[in-house]
């Protein structure tokens, strides 16, 4: 474990806590893409298949459980909770995320560490995580004004993978057998997708104005 990875995990956890806060405090999920939340729930379920077979550390197991439970709870809440689901922007959240699912799975069948069930699902979760934010970014551009908590949620979600890239650079130089090309390249793509969001987020923070993404 290194500081970059720990900081990345904490930012990831913070993004989920901010989202939970927004939904439970405002009893609203306006501006949140259900499709992105469904994709994230799938990412964790596909990646943590080894949750009960490979014990790495207490921290690792607890964080995996937190991510699986929180992501499924958010999807459940946006679909089933009578109050919350009323504020879901169904007509704006129209990104065809099934294409992202199919493309990620097809790529995982072609490019993976080993052609085994667990490795293919791990690669699938890595590719899917890289593109899972797209429905959310499209929804933000369509809904124009972004409320603070939603903006902070997307910001922390983007920052976490940027810290993971620093972690991979650090591990590459400090560990002999370290090579994670699949995660690294996918992580770069994932962070790059946030580039324009980070730019407009920085501008709104600098000018102390409401965050607006150009349509």
């Amino acid at each position: 474990m290194n500081i970059f990875r720990f900081a990345g995990d904490m930012m990831h956890l913070t993004s989920i806590l901010v989202l939970l806060l927004k939904i439970y405090a405002t009893k609203s999920c306006s501006g949140i893409s259900l499709k992105t939340q469904e994709l994230y729930a799938l990412v964790f379920l596909a990646r943590y298949l080894d949750l009960f077979t490979d014990f790495i550390s207490v921290y690792n197991t607890i964080m995996k459980l937190v991510f699986i439970v929180s992501s499924t709870a958010i999807v459940w809440c946006m679909k089933r909770d009578r109050v919350v689901r009323r504020s879901y922007d169904k007509q704006l959240d129209t990104f065809r995320h099934y294409f992202l699912l199919a493309a990620s799975f097809a790529l995982a069948l072609l490019v993976n560490e080993k052609f085994t069930f667990q490795e293919i699902f791990w690669a699938f979760s890595i590719y899917l995580e890289a593109v899972a934010i797209l429905p959310q970014l499209v929804l933000l551009q369509r809904s124009g004004n972004v409320d603070n908590l939603t903006g902070q949620y997307v910001f922390f979600l983007g920052a976490y993978r940027a810290f993971y890239i620093l972690n991979w650079i650090y591990r590459y130089f400090t560990e002999t057998h370290f090579s994670r090309w699949i995660a690294c390249i996918s992580g770069l793509v994932q962070t790059a997708l946030y580039a324009d969001f980070f730019y407009y987020y920085y501008i709104s923070w600098k000018n102390n104005t409401k965050l607006k993404l150009p349509a």
Partner: peptide
């Protein structure tokens, strides 16, 4: 082994 070190991350 190599693959175990790869999967110690979240």
């Amino acid at each position: 082994g190599l693959s175990s070190s790869l999967k110690d991350e979240l």
